[in-house]
């Protein structure tokens, strides 16, 4: 990798012919970096022949250079194939920075890709700063209670993923449209180490929280299935739907359909009341479209308070019964 180009790559993730929102957010990050670093942005799509339509769409939407890497290595790529195709392309084109959204797919292949390139992978960044010409990224640590600034050492390419929701997904179109560069990679042998058997959708649609106008949700702070009843009671008096973070569902306190977050449902209610939920990013991505968020948590530093409109630092077992009582009075 001798001739390092002044390019920032953004790997665009897609499913069923559509871009992931977090991929658009990664483009925003790249565009913010390109000016100060005096670099240009290339949008990179990887897939088989079916990516053509999406490639042209992305070209029209952004007016940025698009690199479409086509390979007929089976519709369902395994991380081995993704790594191999990207490793070859990165070694040839030598971008300075490779940006992507911190998605489940990226978790599955990016660490391995970086290790193959003998580079570090800075995961789940939520901001950046350029100081004295040096690029720093910021990432959440300790359950989001603290943020940490990180810097790369050594030679590019630098590989970075960004947290969903950290950057805007608004399209900033540039006028010069350099067009699409197609790159065909001969089919790779499907690595026998890992083989996809099937992809299935599981959670039943019995509980559709996406349309709920009020959601009362409980987290690990509720402590047990029995005590979780408090959440059901509050939901009942408010005429609300019941939601949960992951631990209550893992613990079998209520069915999986109630889980909200990246592995569960996405809600957009008028009012979302989070009780005993810390506010991990995987939960927050499911609630950010809520009009009004209330958080009740005993820890004043819980990250949920960073996104709440109203906050109560207190014990759910004391505060929620009072709310139930007040809501009952209102109904009378």
């Amino acid at each position: 990798m001798e001739h390092l180009t002044n390019r920032i790559w953004v790997l665009l993730e897609h499913r069923d012919g559509r871009l992931k929102p977090v991929s658009r957010e990664a483009v925003t990050c790249a565009q913010a970096l390109a000016g100060p670093l005096k670099m240009s942005v290339s949008l990179v799509l990887l897939g088989d022949h079916t990516i053509e339509g999406l490639t042209h769409q992305v070209d029209r939407e952004y007016g940025l250079e698009v690199l479409a890497i086509r390979t007929e290595s089976g519709a369902v790529c395994t991380p081995e194939i993704q790594c191999e195709v990207l490793r070859q392309s990165i070694a040839q084109e030598a971008p300075y920075l490779v940006l992507m959204g911190h998605s489940y797919q990226v978790i599955d292949f990016a660490p391995r890709l970086a290790a193959q390139l003998d580079r570090a992978f800075l995961s789940n960044c939520l901001g950046h700063e350029i100081r004295d010409g040096k690029l720093h990224f910021i990432r959440p640590v300790f359950g989001g209670k603290l943020h940490q600034e990180m810097t790369f050492l050594g030679e590019p390419p630098f590989i970075v993923s960004i947290q969903p929701g950290a950057y805007s997904n608004q399209i900033l179109r540039t006028e010069d449209s350099p067009g699409v560069v197609w790159k065909d990679i001969p089919p790779l042998k499907q690595n026998p180490g890992r083989r996809v058997l099937e992809i299935v959708e599981e959670a039943s649609k019995k509980v559709d929280l996406t349309q709920a106008s009020v959601v009362v949700a409980g987290g690990r702070g509720l402590a047990s299935r029995e005590k979780f009843q408090l959440i059901l009671d509050l939901a009942e008096v408010l005429g609300a739907s019941v939601g949960a973070s992951r631990p209550p569902v893992d613990g079998g306190w209520l069915p999986k359909e109630h889980q909200i977050g990246s592995s569960g449902q996405t809600v957009a209610p008028r009012l979302y009341i989070a009780c005993g939920i810390s506010g991990a990013i995987q939960h927050l991505v499911g609630i950010t479209s809520s009009q009004c968020i209330v958080a009740i948590n005993k820890d004043p530093n819980a990250p949920i308070f960073n996104v709440a409109d109203y906050g109560i630092v207190g014990d759910v077992f004391k505060v929620v019964p009072l709310l139930i009582e007040l809501a009952r009075e209102l109904r009378r």
């Binding site: 209670k145 603290l146 943020h147 990180m150 810097t151 050492l153 960073n306 996104v307 207190g314 014990d315």
Partner: peptide, 25 residues
């Protein structure tokens, strides 16, 4: 490694959260 950890800090709030005060009631 190829990373240098920098300063840690407490995140700024994104929203103006109204924190309610007083007794539980």
């Amino acid at each position: 490694s190829r990373l240098v950890p920098g300063r840690l800090f407490f995140p700024a709030k994104k929203k103006r959260t109204v924190m309610l005060e007083g007794s539980d009631e």
